[in-house]
């Protein structure tokens, strides 16, 4: 169990997050387990409300109250980080785990120049002098593709376009040289042509610096292009996890297959898209057994009774009773 020996950087085990409300406790994450290796890009995909952003927030210790981790553990390089005190977690968040959010304006301070913000972040986490940090900041801006970085380092966030701001946020997330970055819908607010630039940038930087990335998005296309592995979430649980190619081409879980089939393709036209009937249940009405059973074309009796755990299914792991037989 000692961390560090293998390539595993982040390990999440049986993570449970709950929101107490006046109508009872809502279980938003229900036993999430996965791991991310050093330098790996893991995609987390799911519909809104599936818990994908919440998983990211739990890892970086930014769950919005009243949400709280009530079970399981999160280990970074073998060390538990889910029970760290606030101050210690803040250090981990800046130095060891970087964060990129959908809206760059939530990350950037509008009152400080981007150079100031970069220099401060660098100096907080790395033993560098002011001028060294500034040089480092400029080289980061160049690296994320800000043209004329030396001239623009003293500009303020509002002087940049949306795409450029997101580049600055990426520089900010990476400049402390973290081991891992949690990126929550980093390209959703951007136009497609800009989106492609940002994805390519993140992918290149992660590879060059050996940074692990957890990429949370609802866009399967982005995942397919960027990630090594992908976790498909449904109603607060992981439905399927495995190498991207396998999950996309040979999905095992009926939800994943339905999801893949429902995405309109660019290269061919069909008369009718495949669709999954119904909608994902709200947290208040998650059915017994497998959360997907009311919509599942292959649902069996056991699906209505028992919650399936993740088990090997082809080249991936799927939380589905269909693969029980193979397991025995």
């Amino acid at each position: 169990m000692a961390g560090g020996a293998d390539a595993t950087l982040l390990e999440v085990r049986d993570l449970v997050v709950e929101f107490p409300t006046r109508r009872g406790v809502l279980r938003a994450l229900d036993g999430i387990s996965f791991s991310i290796a050093r330098g790996e890009v893991l995609g987390v995909v799911g519909e809104s409300g599936a818990g994908k952003s919440l998983t990211g927030a739990a890892i970086i210790g930014l769950l919005e109250p009243p949400g709280r981790v009530v079970g399981g553990e999160i280990r970074l390089d073998g060390q538990r980080i889910d029970n760290l005190p606030q101050a210690a977690m803040r250090k981990v968040r800046g130095k060891r785990i970087g964060a990129i959010f959908q809206d760059p304006l939530t990350t950037l301070n509008p009152l400080l120049s981007i150079g100031r913000q970069l220099v401060e972040t660098i100096r907080t986490h790395l033993p560098l002098s002011e001028s060294e940090a500034r040089e480092r900041a400029i080289s980061w801006l160049e690296e994320v593709g800000i043209p004329a970085a030396r001239q623009r380092i003293d500009a303020y966030p509002h002087e940049f376009s949306g795409g450029m701001r997101q580049r600055v946020v990426i520089a900010l997330a990476l400049c402390a040289e973290p081991e891992m970055v949690v990126a929550d819908e980093p390209t959703t607010a951007l136009d497609v042509s800009i989106q492609a630039q940002i994805i390519a940038l993140m992918k290149r930087l992660a590879a060059e610096h050996g940074t692990a990335v957890m990429l949370v998005t609802h866009d399967m296309g982005v995942i397919a292009e960027t990630c090594d592995r992908v976790a498909v979430m449904y109603a607060g649980r992981i439905a399927e996890i495995g190498p991207v190619r396998e999950v996309v081409k040979h999905p095992s879980h009926p939800y994943t297959s339905g999801l893949m089939a429902s995405i309109p393709a660019l290269d061919r036209k069909v008369a009718r898209l495949a669709q999954i009937e119904g909608a994902m249940p709200r947290l208040t009405t998650i059915p017994r057994g497998c959360a997907f059973n009311p919509r599942c074309p292959k649902a069996m009796d056991v699906c209505r009774q028992e919650k399936p755990g993740l088990r090997p299914a082809g080249a991936t792991m799927a939380a589905c009773h269909l693969y029980e037989v193979e397991n025995v």
């Binding site: 497609v192 492609a196 994805i199 399967m220 292009e225 660019l266």
Partner: peptide, 24 residues
Amino acid sequence: RLLLEAIPDLEMVGRARTPVGGEV
């Protein structure tokens, strides 16, 4: 052509491509 090229697609698994630069 740029738009069609830029769209992330399921068929693109693992494929690297050169995004077009510039902004609107």
